[in-house]
Structures are given as structure tokens and as C-alpha cells.
Amino acid sequence: MKRNYSVLLVIVGAVLWAASNVANAIQPRKPNVAASSWILMDYETGNVIMEEAADEPLPPASLTKMMTSYIIADQLHKGNISLEDQVLISKNAWAQNPKLRGGSLMFVEVNKYVSVDDLHRGIVVQSGNDASIAMAEHIAGSEEAFADLMNQYAKRLGMNSTHFMNSTGLPDENHISTARDLAKLARALIADFPEDYSLYAEREFTYNGITQKNRNELLGDTTLGVDGIKTGHTEEAGYCLVSSAEKQGMRLISVVLGADSMGTRASESRKLLNFGFRFYTNVKAFAAGKALNQAQVWKGEEEKVAVGLAQDAVLTVLKSEKDELKANYKLNGKLMAPIKKGQVVGEVYFNMGDTVVKRLPMVALDNVEEAGFFGRMWDSMALWFED
């Protein structure tokens, strides 16, 4: 077979939809949000739709318990603890008097045994500080050791602006997080432990004859499909709410920090979620494993290799601009055999007008073995003349 040594164009434009004038697209004004810091993120893509002061370090109050719950779920799934484990309530866990320290309780009793299942619900639904400390001690031996564990988990999840000092969110000047980090945590909680995440939709929980309602004001909002996540409040933090809602196949995560009342945190969260659902959509541009091009291979048994994406390319865009999305891809120079399936060989990048909105690695979709001696020599000569 005659070998083709024509130069592969390094940059090739691929129009996903018929392009129109970006300047003419309808651009809705972003809402004014009455909070110190906030963010709206798409769950599937992790794309931030809008934000304000999302990297400002602030006290997270009881939103902290999202991490406490995340660790409990992780330990359950690893088999290190079980829902049937009986946890002895220490005096330290019991003595979380809200009049002295602030916060909410599950109302466990000192020196009594409580199941992990009940304590987990007491943390998620009732936001119990006593339950949080009891589980921290059960998992790590002490709350101080558990806080160190929390910080290790935060680092793993990319929560780079977060530092935990306790399992509850009670005030400490070194206990901080950001709206962006809390959105990352919420996304991980839903993705990694969906069965445990279902606890966040429970409206109330009864323990020791005391029924307490979930403080999330948006639960049960049929217009939004809110099924979580967590409220928080201290004098230092103000009123905080992390929300997640699913509507017409799209899930959004909103974080509102530092609102001035329970009503405000609910209304501003509702405002963000409504805006996201009304004006944004997710577009699946390319499927994983689909060949986007055939790239020239040098010194290989095959002349070309199919290239594409290792993961689906899904982008969150304005509904009014989805027809203007374009994809371009480029190779990382000339491809030399041997090439392994899944090897990164270039990049696919997506443009909205002149702005790059997403980049993904492009990979080889097949193996290409190295050619024999004469094939390699022939290609070496061709490359010499090309250069």
C-alpha cells in the first residue's frame, strides 16, 4: 500500500451546530443575590454558571456537617463501620448545650448506646452537634483527630480554601470554607454516595420521642425539585444554605452564604436555581470513544489512528447560545509509534465566539505498534525531507 506522507493539519475546526452571530444572542441579566457569597454550579459538568465572592473564606456553620456526613458515608462503604454499630455517647458529645455553645441537638443521652444509622440521620436531618461529635469520636477517637481527617478529605476533593477545626461548624477563627469549595463537596457527596445522599431529602426524624423537622426550607418545593442539601447558621456565619435540585434531567447546586435570615437564604437560593433552570442547558457535544478524526502516525504498522475523547464532552451553556458552540482540536505535534489506546495525543477545545469555554484531552482510540526496520527507516527519511 502506498504510504501517504501529506502533512496532517494540526488544527481542524469542527462546527457542532450552524454558527450564528454571538453578539446577537440574548444575554439575561444575572440576578442580584442578597448574600455575602454565592455560587451556582451544574452538577453533571461542574461548570460554574455564575458566582459572587465564591472564593472568600467564610465560616461555614453547620454546612460543615456535609463533610462529617461524607466521611461517615465513605467509612460505611469501605466497611470500616456499619449502620448497626452501637456508639457509646461520651460526656463530651452529650454536653453540647445550645445555650452555652449555640447549635442544634439530636438529644442523645450520656453513656447510652445509639446506632450509627440513627446518628447519621441525626446529623443530616436534625443537624445535631451531639450526633456529629459522637460519630467523630467513633471514627477517629477524638474530635481533634476527626478534624484532621476532614482536612485530608477536603484536600483530596480539591477544597483548597477550606480548613476544618471541628465536626459541627461551631465558631472558630480557623474554621473556614468558601462557596466554591462547598459546591465541590456537595457535588462529591451526590456523585460518590447517592444512597446516603437520599437522607438529605428526609423531612423529619424522630429520636428519643422527639421529632425534629429538617430546616431546609426548599425541601418539597415541587416547582424546583429540591432534594437537599444542608442549612447552617451562627451569628458569625449568618444564614447559609447549600441546595441541590433536579429538573428535566438537569441537576444544579447552589450555595448561599451570609444571608440575613432564614427566609432570605431560601428566597435567594430559589432565585439562583430558577435562573439556572430557565436559561441554561447541558449540551452533549461528543460521546466518549467516538472518532473525531484519523491522525497520521509515523514509524508505525498503521498509517493512521482514530482519535477522540476518553469521556463524554458535556457543556453547560445558555439556551440562547447553544447553536453557536464550536469545537476545535489539535494534535501534540507528529505522532510516533508505538501508540497505546487511551494515550493523550492532543486536545479538544470548545469555543463560544472567541472564548474557549472548555478543554478536554484527545486520546488515541486504538493501539498502533511500531513498524519494522525498513518501515521506520522509510518514515525517518520522509520526516527528514519534511523538516
Rank of each mutant, 00 (worst) to 15 (best):
A134M: 09
D130Y: 12
A145M: 12
S127Y: 09
S115N: 10
A140P: 13
E137P: 11
D148E: 12
A136V: 06
A140W: 06
M135Q: 02
Q126M: 14
N111G: 06
V114T: 10
G141C: 12
D118I: 11
Y113A: 10
D117L: 12
S127Q: 04
A147K: 07
V124D: 02
D118Y: 06
M135I: 11
A131N: 00
E137R: 09
K112S: 14
D117C: 04
I139D: 03
V125G: 04
A134Q: 11
G128W: 01
S142L: 09
A131G: 02
I139L: 11
E137G: 04
M135Y: 05
L149G: 01
A145T: 10
I123E: 08
V125N: 05
R121C: 05
I139A: 04
G122Q: 11
H120I: 10
Y113H: 14
N129I: 05
D130C: 10
D148K: 11
V125K: 01
V114I: 14
M135F: 09
I133H: 02
L119D: 09
I139M: 09
A134L: 06
I123N: 09
E137A: 11
V125P: 01
D117V: 00
E144K: 15
A140S: 15
D148F: 07
L149H: 02
D117M: 09
F146Y: 13
Q126H: 07
L149A: 08
V125H: 00
N111T: 05
S132F: 00
E143P: 03
H138K: 15
D118H: 13
D148Y: 11
A136R: 06
A134P: 03
H138A: 14
A131D: 01
Q126G: 00
V116I: 13
V125M: 02
V124G: 02
N111R: 13
G141R: 10
Y113V: 00
A136P: 10
E143L: 03
H120S: 09
M135V: 06
V124R: 04
N129L: 05
H138R: 15
R121W: 03
S127W: 09
N129K: 06
M135P: 03
A134D: 07
I123M: 13
S142P: 05
G141V: 06
Y113M: 12
L119W: 13
D118W: 00
I133T: 03
N111W: 08
A134Y: 02
S127T: 14
F146R: 09
F146E: 01
A145E: 15
V114M: 04
E144Y: 11
I123W: 07
A131K: 02
M135T: 00
G122M: 12
G141L: 05
V124C: 13
